[in-house]
């Protein structure tokens, strides 16, 4: 459908970034941000379903759960939390730069955000590797003797399955996030943004912060509760 405006002669000063079915830039921006928020609503329910199922099993099998948390390294988890929080800071500053029209800063901050995002994924890979070595990967590499506690083997396997499901799904979101940053960065380098038009930066920022929030909950749920049973 060509943008043949035939009958639409309302907007005289036509911003090239304004799509034909919107009347004003503000309306377009508000729609995009609201759209992202509604999308995040669905994301909350996505993760919510997993959190719910995981919580049910954890409360059904508290001892087995305690035995799994021994295999979660709170150091790596904590480090990753810190890394993600820094990335959220650079992201927030990137959005700020975009709003102010500071193109150079925007690009630098986007690159930094990507680097921290990749660092997070790197740490996650180290952890996954450790689980593999310990034979804690259900189905592919699971020790039926479960570290000398075979009575927990079945239940712990379910809990580990949820661990991989949740962190894997979160990591997938990180990969999508980093890819988004790459796209935004290329758009920024092309000079696509200015102080009037920065919608893609804004809504990608919302997405990035959301992924950060999910981790803020995953960290205590997976790594911290049960920590006291092993350190004291």
């Amino acid at each position: 459908m060509a943008d043949s405006h035939g009958v639409v002669a309302e907007h005289a000063e036509h911003n090239p970034n304004l799509r034909h079915h919107f009347d004003t830039m503000a309306q377009q921006f508000d729609s995009a941000t609201l759209g992202m928020w509604v999308f995040l609503l669905t994301e909350i329910m996505f993760f919510g379903g997993m959190f719910g199922a995981y919580t049910v099993y954890r409360s059904m099998y508290p001892e087995a759960f305690a035995s799994t948390s021994k295999h979660m390294d709170a150091f790596w988890g904590g480090l990753n939390t810190a890394v993600l929080i820094v990335s959220s800071l650079t992201m927030a500053l990137a959005v700020r730069a975009a709003r102010l029209g500071q193109q150079k800063n925007l690009q630098i901050l986007l690159v930094l955000t990507m680097i921290f995002g990749l660092a997070f994924l790197g740490v996650k890979a180290i952890e996954y590797h450790a689980h593999w070595v310990e034979h804690m990967v259900p189905y592919w590499n699971w020790d039926p003797n479960y570290d000398g506690q075979p009575q927990y083997a079945h239940n712990a396997q379910i809990l580990f399955c949820f661990y991989f499901f949740m962190t894997g799904f979160h990591a997938l979101h990180m990969i999508v996030g980093v890819s988004l940053m790459l796209v935004i960065l290329m758009m920024a380098r092309r000079g696509a943004f200015n102080a009037e038009y920065f919608t893609p930066v804004e809504i990608s920022g919302l997405y990035w912060h959301f992924v950060d929030i999910v981790w803020i909950f995953l960290f205590p749920l997976l790594y911290l509760i049960g920590l006291h049973q092993h350190t004291t």
């Binding site: 709170a74 904590g78 939390t81 810190a82 929080i85 960290f219 205590p220 911290l224 509760i225 920590l227 006291h228 049973q229 350190t231 004291t232």
Partner: peptide, 12 residues
């Protein structure tokens, strides 16, 4: 983040 990590070590 540091606080939540430290507090988690205390058995409450």
């Amino acid at each position: 983040t540091f606080v939540t990590y430290s507090v988690a070590k205390i058995d409450m």
